[in-house]
Design a protein around this nucleic acid. Structure first.
Length: 590
RNA sequence: GGAGCCGUGGUGUAGCUGGUUAACACGUCGGCCUGUCACGCCGAAGAUCGCGAGUUCGAAUCUCGUCGGUUCCGCCA
């Protein structure tokens, strides 16, 4: 039986414990060696507390040990909790009114000087922090975030457990399937030349669990996608994956928003009353130019197409004649405040985003400034100003192109302006459902329709026929939950009819032969009594990121990878031995 | 695949219109110090400037390439 075991966490030491004997285990966060006595800020996951090392209470022999202490040494201290002497309190510290007068000190581990100070880690280059991730993890910032993540998962689990959901694991070594993201591939030793894939999501397995009779399933599921990374995208990430049988769309939406609101309230104390807004996909695109609108601020898109279709300004007229649209946003007040340079920057941004140009109109008292002022008739100008509710001092920004391009450009410009003009209140949490998605979208590159959601998403009943006649028009029984302009999760009611599934694959350009070769086992399963079912998956990392107020999911993953998909700590990926390759019958070609 | 930004002692920065011994802060090490809390004071060590090539009498500084980090576009059902 060792005698150094913790009785309390550092951060829990307070006035009520005054006079009590405690034992603390932790790391030396900082030491202040005054020569005759030493103060140490001791750190564990709960926080810091000052411990006092005084030769009078510690004895000369133990004090000699204390003099060896350095930052990040791991120690156990036992002693008495004391109120600090008057005038020695530190109000900047949570435990600043108490200290522990140490009677016994044990060094449990020495430590090299760390490459950076733990409490200044946030200023250090990220590659160094990632290489020494285990040191960065000691920082209060990451300690808090990782703990928040745990609490969120715990709340999700308890919510779902209480409602009869079963947590079920699904395999990680599965079959590569076409559609969707690039798979991570795992070679098979037993079957040379054949490969497993890591799941992009447990999609088909959770549906098979429904066919397997499990009714209500969930999993905190690791997913893998071999695509390029972003601040909010890692090659492996975690989904809260859910599926339910004998339900329709509204059942799922209702219980899932209850879950999300439950988590928000329990871990952040944010109380939001349901039911949440549901916005049609088309309305989201029309008003916000985005399928995940950030509704915390205005700057909505307005259509001016009817007012400019016969304009002398050719760009407008020609665009409309070719079936395009002209839309705009009103950057209120910016006509008066933006410099020419700032306006030019907006135009440049719009071009980078794929617009052919960006028309601006600065409104003055009785006059307008605009590169195209002389091409616009009074009626046209009045129409535009009215549609955009322009006032003197406003800056109107217009784009003319195909609907999708205009929506995308103005939608993104809206976000840029929202941030630039500081219109976004960070305290707000705007949640909404986007519903009535298109089932398929046309992909210009492959010249075919691809699934907007995934190939097992059910079309709206009345749109099933459209699959064969006008696939782009078919709507899906799909729904996304959006939080502050970020897609938190999405799901759908699934196809359970073989004939509908076949139509879907046909619309996606599969021959029946291909479809059955790739998905035969799946389609066969549906012939043995598939209950109506649907589900959803939430991106846990993004959810935590939003609640933690971080701007990268690297900050909410204990051991994340860099933007080039490397783990700088374990140095993965790495070559393997020729013996390993030989065993797998693999040859590296480079 | 493309574009932008960054890379200088352990860490964060300065220097970078080419030219002395590469500066500062923190950290580290040593000394002094019994109420500090970003402890203080004194002293010391520590970088050939990511790597390679080029231009030049001379490169941290200019050019090209390359590697790494990061942000965005493409990609991510």
């Amino acid at each position: 039986m060792v005698d150094w075991k913790r009785t309390h966490y550092c951060g829990t030491i307070n006035e009520e414990l005054a006079g009590r004997d405690v034992t603390l285990n932790g790391w030396v966060n900082r030491r202040r060696d005054l020569g005759g006595m030493i103060f140490v800020d001791l750190r564990d996951r709960s926080g810091l507390v000052q411990v006092v090392l005084n030769p009078e209470t510690l004895g000369a022999e133990q004090f000699a040990v204390a003099e060896k202490l350095r930052n990040e040494y791991v120690v156990s201290v036992s002693g008495v909790v004391n109120l600090r002497p008057q005038g020695q309190e530190n109000p900047n510290m949570e435990t600043g009114y108490v200290e522990v007068n140490v009677t016994k000190l044990t060094i449990l581990a020495e430590a090299k000087t760390p490459p950076f100070q733990i409490d200044k880690a946030d200023q250090v280059d990220e590659s160094i922090r990632l290489k020494y991730r285990y040191l960065h993890l000691r920082s209060s910032e990451l300690q808090k975030t990782i703990a928040l993540r745990h609490e969120m998962v715990a709340e999700v689990r308890s919510f779902l457990n209480d409602r009869g959901f079963l947590e079920i694991e699904t395999p990680l070594l599965i079959r590569s399937t076409p559609e969707g993201a690039r798979d991570y591939i795992v070679p098979s030793r037993i079957h040379p030349g054949e490969f497993y894939a890591l799941p992009q999501s447990p999609q088909m397995f959770k549906q098979l669990l429904m066919i397997g009779g499990f009714d209500r399933y969930y999993q905190i599921a690791r997913c893998f996608r071999d695509e390029d990374l972003r601040a909010d995208r890692q090659p492996e990430f975690t989904q809260i994956d859910i599926e339910m049988s004998f339900v329709d769309r509204d059942d799922i939406i209702e219980i899932m928003e209850e879950m999300i609101l439950h988590v928000l309230e329990r871990v952040k104390g944010i109380k939001i009353d349901g039911p949440l807004t549901r916005m049609g996909y088309q309305e989201a695109m029309d008003r916000f130019g985005s399928d995940r609108p950030d509704t915390r601020f205005g700057l909505e898109l307005r259509d001016v197409t009817p007012g400019v279709q016969n304009s002398e300004f050719r760009v407008f007229a020609d665009t409309v004649n070719k079936g395009g649209v002209v839309k705009g946003i009103n950057a209120e007040g910016c006509g008066a405040t933006f410099t020419r340079r700032e306006i030019d920057e907006l135009v440049e941004k719009a071009t980078e985003m794929g617009a052919k140009g960006l028309i601006w109109i600065a409104l003055e008292e009785d006059n307008v400034r605009s590169p195209i002022a002389k091409f616009l008739s009074k009626d046209e100008l009045d129409y535009i100003i009215e549609a955009l509710e322009g006032k003197p001092g406003d800056l109107l920004l217009l784009a003319a192109d195909k609907y999708d391009v205009v929506s995308d450009v103005l939608g993104r410009l809206r976000l840029v302006l929202g941030r630039k003009l500081d219109l976004i209140d960070d305290e707000l949490y705007h949640l909404l459902w986007v519903v009535d998605w298109p089932l398929l979208v046309y992909d210009e590159e492959s010249k075919r329709f691809v699934a907007a959601h995934h190939p097992f998403t059910a079309p709206v009943d009345s749109d099933i026929e459209l699959l064969e006649t006008d696939p782009g028009k078919a709507r899906a029984k799909a729904y996304d939950l959006v939080l502050n302009g970020v897609e938190l999760g999405g799901g759908s009611i699934r196809i359970t009819s073989r004939t509908v599934q076949e139509k879907m694959f046909k619309a996606l350009g599969f021959t029946m032969e291909e479809a059955y070769r790739q998905f035969g086992y799946f389609m066969e399963a549906f012939e043995y009594g598939a209950p109506p079912h649907g589900g959803i998956a939430f991106g846990l990392d993004r959810f935590v990121m939003l609640l933690a107020g971080r701007s990268s999911i690297r900050d909410v993953i204990a051991f994340p990878k860099t933007v080039s998909a490397r783990d700088l700590m374990v140095e993965a990926p790495a070559p393997v031995s020729s013996e390993q390759l030989e065993e797998l019958k693999l040859k590296v070609n480079n």
